[in-house]
Design a binder for these strands. Structure first.
Lengths: 239, 239
DNA sequence: GAGTGGTCTAGACCACCGT
DNA sequence: CGGTGGTCTAGACCACTCC
């Protein structure tokens, strides 16, 4: 006797609560109805309500106090390093118009380091894409991304004009997890020229490995970020 | 007919699975028994097994493929910026012996910026703690932490020799969430002297706000990190 | 089609919080 | 104490993936 529906009940309840928060019907600090009441209101089981709330807790929208209630928390930072993989979204969020230029794409054998990090043998090949991302026309990020040819499943370099995350998803290797190593450096002559900044300007270097749902490493990225363009934010949570 | 027990069934199952992974009884890529079998083996309901697995998925230890199975994933980085709040643990993980020195503690009125970020009025007071953290005796992090006096609930500065997170937990404001703003900079004369490095050395500046379980901001930290001492890692996950 | 994880229910009892 | 979230069960059916 169930109707056809796209989003799950859990998702519907979550969306509804989130709308109440965003719209201000539920203000920061407000106490939510208890779980039994919410279950009644949404005409679902308490387990469904709990799962909906679980997601909002993880995202930081709500807080629970055992024996007391569930409360609306101050909104956490969206577009943070830990939860977003798209720099385009981050640049836009910072109020700039994102754009990008592909400097170069080439197929080549991996270096030993790359082979190790990507789990390849030295006779396999990788695609390397060199790009610069801009905000309002100003260079913000210079990056070199490497994807194993076997992961990509094509040698059509035209594809690479798209977001590499979209390309990887097409190829059946949607990125779900990444590990980034952060290091502050100063610009050398080459990077300074590419990013149109003075040499010795502080930059953030990010070396990142992206993994698909199977845990397989599918992309390796070196990125150089201009410091003052937008905030890099990390949401941290206690273990 | 339930026995007395400390950890929940969910926790017991999770720990057991984690041990199998860490010990190698379950190797990377191995497929786990399906959820019904696991429920049988542990003599719990499938819902309990699913909740156990959920935690291991979030931590990155396992992967699920709908219609296929649950698999052991390569271990994620522990002691990363997003999941750890303790620099002491990070320094030790990097193979160095952590230590620290408190340079100064003082009570004072907050600046307007601090009052805003900490949700205070200008006539309340904050404790400021200035510290240097070392690895193997080498200065690695210089930090200035500010905690509202009302949060601390004491003016006993002797306490502040302990980890501030422990102090905050004692005070009933255990830190569960934090937002960090990362920015690469170069050392000015003062910071260079404190960290015993050359001026203009690249540093990572972190401006962080810590929140307790209620979402209340309980500490504000400015930190200057020496770049080459240990890797700052961020685990990123798709939204 | 067989096997897997994904969703959902209805109900029970426990453990903690504030009054 | 009453109210809240925390844990757990047993069972049902759905949706996807692989062979």
């Amino acid at each position: 006797m169930r109707r056809v529906r796209q989003p799950s009940l859990v998702e519907q309840v979550r969306t509804s609560l989130l709308e109440d928060i965003r719209s201000g019907r539920l203000a920061v600090g407000d106490k939510l109805p208890n779980e039994y009441e919410l279950a009644d209101q949404f005409a679902v089981s308490r387990a469904t309500v709990r799962e909906s709330i679980q997601g909002l807790l993880e995202a930081g929208h709500l807080t629970r106090q055992r024996g007391n209630g569930t409360f609306v928390a101050p909104a956490p930072s969206r577009h943070a390093l830990d939860t977003t993989v798209s720099y385009t979204a981050m640049i836009r969020e910072a109020g700039h118009e994102p754009s990008e230029t592909v400097l170069r794409t080439l197929f080549r054998a991996p270096t030993p380091t790359e082979a190790d990090r990507l789990g390849l043998t030295l006779d396999e090949r990788v695609v390397e894409v060199e790009r610069i991302r801009f905000g309002d026309g100003r260079p913000l990020i210079y990056s070199r991304d490497r994807i194993p040819e076997t992961v990509l499943g094509t040698t059509d370099t035209d594809l690479l004009g798209n977001s590499l995350y979209v390309v990887l998803e097409w190829a059946g290797h949607k990125v779900t997890r990444a590990t980034a190593h952060l290091k502050p450096i100063t610009a050398n002559a080459k990077i300074a020229r590419l990013l149109q900044i003075r040499p010795r300007t502080p930059l953030l270097h990010i070396l990142q490995t992206d993994h698909d749902a199977d845990g397989r490493p599918v992309m390796l990225s070196d990125e150089w970020h201009v410091a003052d363009a937008f905030d890099l934010i990390v949401n941290r949570r206690a273990p």
